[in-house]
């Protein structure tokens, strides 16, 4: 197992290298630069600014300088936010996204798993129909509709929570619910599907024949196999949910990394684009690895190879 994990971790290095290289050159070929603005700068001033950030050097040298920099863990200064470094911005914003993502994930699992199991066990009953319909609605209603609706009701109409911001624990409720609902719907449907498949298997019949209680059959024997599709979904989903959602962060004005990621591209903040892309890539690879490990652990038919 350790060799498997070590090998996969080593693969991250070339993956990141390819991603950094591709991103570095792609952002440079986009028209407009970090200092392009409505009001044109006199050429002398533009030259001073570009010299300050080393943008006056040939592209290949800038690329090599950048690689040298990231080898030392320095992601460079932000072009947009003059007195902040990319390391600092990520250090500030990532914890916020992790917190929001963690809470949303908790909501998603707490809602999705039990409802999925329930729907599978009470298959084709009103419980199943209710859960499936709710799940379908959850998948279909986009967050940019659900979020403002929740704000309208709980923040504006009832005045219980703030409409936006990230100041105290009450500000966590609506964003976590909005983001969590969507994932809960997916998890519910995947759990239901996985459980239905497993509940028809021979070993479940054996367990029942041996007189195991229904709760034991479902929770102990079936759930482990029924969760497999959920786990493979959760790998990339957790990476997405933890790195922040641009839409949720914008609706609720949360100072997370998702907004920085998208806005840095609009601002042509080259170093911030590269920093966030690298972070996302690394997280995605790590989460996929974790999902693979958990799958082997859950499914005795699989082995580390």
């Amino acid at each position: 197992m350790f060799r498997f994990i070590a090998r996969r971790l080593l693969q991250i290095v070339p993956v990141l290298f390819v991603i950094v290289t591709a991103t570095f050159f792609m952002v440079r070929f986009v028209p407009g630069g970090p200092f392009t603005s409505e009001k044109a700068l006199p050429p002398e001033i533009l030259k001073n600014i570009e010299a300050h950030y080393g943008l006056d050097q040939p592209l290949w040298r800038q690329y090599l300088n950048y690689l040298g920099r990231i080898a030392h863990g320095d992601l460079g200064p932000s072009f947009k936010y003059a007195n902040r470094s990319v390391n600092e911005i990520i250090g500030d914003k990532l914890p916020v996204s992790l917190e929001l993502g963690g809470l949303a994930l908790a909501v998603a699992l707490a809602l999705g798993l039990p409802l999925g199991v329930l729907a599978a066990v009470r298959r084709n009953s009103w419980v199943d129909y209710l859960c499936s319909t709710t799940g379908m609605i959850g998948i279909c209603v986009p967050t940019f509709v659900l979020g403002p609706l929740l704000v309208l009701f709980f923040a504006i109409h009832l005045g219980w929570v703030n409409a936006s911001g990230w100041y105290d624990w009450t500000d966590r409720v609506l964003p976590a619910l909005t983001l969590g609902f969507v994932y809960a719907a997916y998890i519910m449907r995947l759990t239901r599907g996985g459980m239905l498949e497993v509940l028809n298997q021979d070993y479940i019949r054996t367990a029942r024949a041996k007189g195991a209680s229904e709760a034991r059959v479902v929770l102990r024997h079936a759930l482990r196999g029924g969760l497999l599709p959920v786990v493979s979904f959760l790998g990339p989903a957790i990476a997405g949910i933890l790195t922040g959602s641009f839409v949720i962060e914008t609706i609720f004005q949360i100072p997370g990394l998702g907004r920085e990621f998208v806005n840095s591209a609009f601002n042509r903040d080259y170093t911030l684009v590269l920093g966030t892309v690298m972070l996302y890539a690394a997280l995605l690879v790590l989460c996929n690895l974790a999902a693979d490990v958990v799958q082997v652990w859950l499914n005795p038919k699989l082995k580390f190879e």
């Binding site: 403002p148 704000v151 309208l152 923040a155 504006i156 005045g159 703030n162 409409a163 936006s164 911001g165 914008t250 609706i251 609720f252 004005q253 907004r259 806005n263």
Partner: peptide
Amino acid sequence: FYPTDSIDAEERAYRSGQ
């Protein structure tokens, strides 16, 4: 001063008394 970059979000924040 609040840097609210979504005009829809800031309108909702106004209506909720923020």
